[in-house]
Amino acid sequence: MASGQQLTRDDVAGIAAYARIALDDAELVEMTAYLNDAIALLQPILEYDLEDIEPTFHPIGDMANVMREDVPVPGLSLEEALANAGSREGRAFRVPAILDDGGGA
């Protein structure tokens, strides 16, 4: 998917699978058009010669890892942590099978 090349519907279906967002056929068509328009907007980035330029990942340039003393502090209680879960079972978040076949691994 080099620059100048348009993304296809299949490309976009692959991105949607990676992004974990289920898109139906109509959405895939709309999203393909959107992504190609949006990527066209980004082209000025490609026109720079940036070989000797260092990247800035963060506005606070000289910030290193910010650490604190390793002492326990109060956090959410179990009930608070589980309060917004869609499904729970006892003291845990409840999720469907992890494996595709739903089989017992």
Binding site: R20, A22, G86, V95
Partner: peptide, 22 residues
């Protein structure tokens, strides 16, 4: 899983994730 909309009745976690997000 931990918060946010959860699509009901999904057989697998992958399906639940992508449908909940959709």
């Amino acid at each position: 899983v931990r918060y946010g909309y959860q699509e009901p009745g999904c057989a697998t976690l992958a399906k639940q994730t992508s449908l909940s997000r959709a």
